[in-house]
């Protein structure tokens, strides 16, 4: 899968789900891409580097999201 195509697919699907979900497991992303985890990882890494996605971590579990979406712990009290 081409990078640009993958990027569009991820952004589109994640934006669509934004009403209910702002953080996604790595598995969700590889399912969207329809790729094996190792292949998906290469693309997801690049999406992070290009700041299309950002990491979220609880300390024990990591997830991915579109930058600026969802409620972040630090921002809660600023609303």
């Amino acid at each position: 899968m081409e990078y640009e195509e993958a990027k569009q697919l991820i952004v589109e699907k994640l934006t669509k789900k934004l009403k209910t979900k702002s953080k996604f497991y790595f598995n969700d992303l590889s399912k969207i891409l329809g790729l094996k985890p190792r292949e998906a990882k290469k693309i997801v890494n690049r999406l992070i580097q290009d700041q299309v996605l950002e990491y979220w971590s609880s300390g024990s579990t990591s997830m991915y999201g579109l930058p600026g979406t969802g409620k972040q712990a630090s921002a809660e009290h600023e609303e």
Binding site: I48, Q49, E54, G59, A73, H77
Partner: peptide
């Protein structure tokens, strides 16, 4: 205390664990 968040260093998905006080 509350934990978790998007904090980290650029390019790394681990190594930093966000921790905040709920009485800032």
């Amino acid at each position: 205390w509350k934990h978790g968040g998007i904090v980290g260093v650029f390019g790394y998905g681990g190594g930093v664990i966000g921790r905040y006080c709920d009485q800032p």
